[in-house]
Amino acid sequence: MLENRSIMRREGILDQVAMPAEPSSVALRTLPPEARFVLRLGAGDATRNGSIAGLSLALPINRFGADASRLATRLGPDEWLLIGPDADAETMHADAARALAGTHHALVDISHRNVGMELSGRAAAVILNAGCPLDLGDRQFPPGSATRTLLGKAEVVLFRLADVPDRLGVAVPHYRIECWRSFARYVHGYLAGAAAEYAAVRN
């Protein structure tokens, strides 16, 4: 199947979206195609299995764990979202399926269902809060947090990644936003619109 994938390039729904000029206090970028799986598994079974496809499932609800290229986030008592590089899709699926053979579970490929974006910057949280009702305070939603929530009228999964240095080298919050494919232009437009005033402040 791998060689077949190389026949066609994945066309992302945001490929044609023009990026607004990047304001100083915020950066919004779309992510390349990735491999994603919904894993449904009883909490007890997850504990027994420990890690799947190299990712630990032993996480509190609404937290994620990540290594250099993959992440697993626990979105509910029996639900995980696994994300990895597009090229790892087959191996992630095979590894997980092997580990879970004989255990009641669902492992569903949603690589194409979701679209990812990243937002970072000093103003990142208030930009998200333009449409997201979550408390994004450092204590309430620290790095390592991830949950399904809303952004405007779209459902998203929001991850607080590790802080990153901005242009001046100051550590600033860094978020990943996942939404369903058909909502991606809306979500991107919503964030870009909310970010506009932080560009204005610089002028």
Binding site: I61, N62, L75, G76, P77, E79, T147, R148, T149, L150, E155
Partner: peptide
């Protein structure tokens, strides 16, 4: 009342 965390854990 029954509530569903529809845009959260969906439980």
């Amino acid at each position: 009342e029954r509530w569903n965390h529809a845009h959260g854990c969906q439980r």
